[in-house]
Design a protein around this nucleic acid. Sequence first.
DNA 1: CCAAAAGTGTTGGCTCTACACCCATGA
DNA 2: TCATGGGTGTAGAGCCAACACTTTTGG
Lengths: 229, 229
Amino acid sequence: MTHFNLEADHTGRPLRPKVAVDTVVLAFTEGRLQTYLLKIGRGPARGKWAFPGGLVRAGETLDDAARRELRAAGVGPGIHLEQLFTFGDPRRDPRAHVVSVAYLGLLADQGEVSPPAGKYVDGRWFSVAALPTLGYDHSLMARRAVGRLRAKLGYTNIACNLLPGTFTFSELETLYAAVLRRRLDRRNFRRRILAMNILRRTAAMRRGAHRPACLYRFAQRTAQIAEIL
Amino acid sequence: MTHFNLEADHTGRPLRPKVAVDTVVLAFTEGRLQTYLLKIGRGPARGKWAFPGGLVRAGETLDDAARRELRAAGVGPGIHLEQLFTFGDPRRDPRAHVVSVAYLGLLADQGEVSPPAGKYVDGRWFSVAALPTLGYDHSLMARRAVGRLRAKLGYTNIACNLLPGTFTFSELETLYAAVLRRRLDRRNFRRRILAMNILRRTAAMRRGAHRPACLYRFAQRTAQIAEIL
DNA sequence: CCAAAAGTGTTGGCTCTACACCCATGA
DNA sequence: TCATGGGTGTAGAGCCAACACTTTTGG
């Protein structure tokens, strides 16, 4: 491939930008916010880690494209997606001018991920606190994704997309504390969350090594705005 | 043009989506939030009103494309731009699959707009409270733009992009009240804004039909986050 | 002198934060 | 019985909202 083929067609006319989607997949496990990265098997970012993504096809919505690329990367359909930001620097991909619509993807269950194939040679979870070097501009995407999540924890019920159907108050608090990177007072946290009336207490209890804990679920798992923190 | 030419090239292969930018231009004049619309002279939305925009060129950033299209529509370079949302429904433009990156554009001075030419046959300001029927999905863009502005008034100094260099407290309050669609208490509003220390009082006064008012300016005109309302 | 907009403080209620002890269970 | 995490209340400080009158100017 010559340089001319990369930026222009065979008549010398510059190519229009292409459209891609990329999804920052986040999950909360082992008390840490983690993200799913794929090792790229080909192209200029070969050997680097990157978020699942690829070109949008003709006639396809952006959400559909993101879900199709996630499926190809082994990520299950239960993921919550929301648009994050569109990255359009013409040099973000050295091969061609590719405009990428980035998504934030939240997964309640890490088990919903199976090994990838095709253009990827490996897939792994990383703590967002210690990411490897990422390909393209995916570090920017990661920063923006965590920033968005952090902001929305404060005024929406977005946490429901990172937790299983039922969970204890401790788990919810650990999630908030980990994402916001600060300690929370257990009593104040509990009072505020309960005051919002977005949780329902279930009859079940979580039994473990110590005193059992009440299990709660979100009253609604659909997006909901409410002053939280 | 046949239908086939719209969605596929001459070999029958479907065309990749194109990338466009569109800017919702807002200004605050005569006590009302207003938006600049252009009457489209050709294409399927001919005769309808729409925001300035067009296809992104090869090698161009999204911001550059938005500014170039704004210039072509007669909007001056002093506009504040920020990315809003990317609209990707393949049927949003009946001619082809065009993914549009929408921008929010804030103008401090309506005088920075001159009559358009080329693909537009008319340009006019409309109150956002009474928009005409818009082409494509531009009504969605308008709603989202006003929503974003309303939200950011509460926690940033974004208002500085809608006001001239100096302004009175009344003007600032009118802007907030108009965009938030509710009355504000003059004393509480003044106290809170002053407490944030984002304004500087100038020596000048605005003289008019009644008691003169102190003129203020924003300490910084760059983006700044701060709890406001 | 009148009309109209600019400017200015206080109080009560509410919310937020800080803080410590007992409980239930498994090992 | 001990170690561990689960569950609960209160008081003081700070913040927010509600509220009305005086000042300055032009006409």
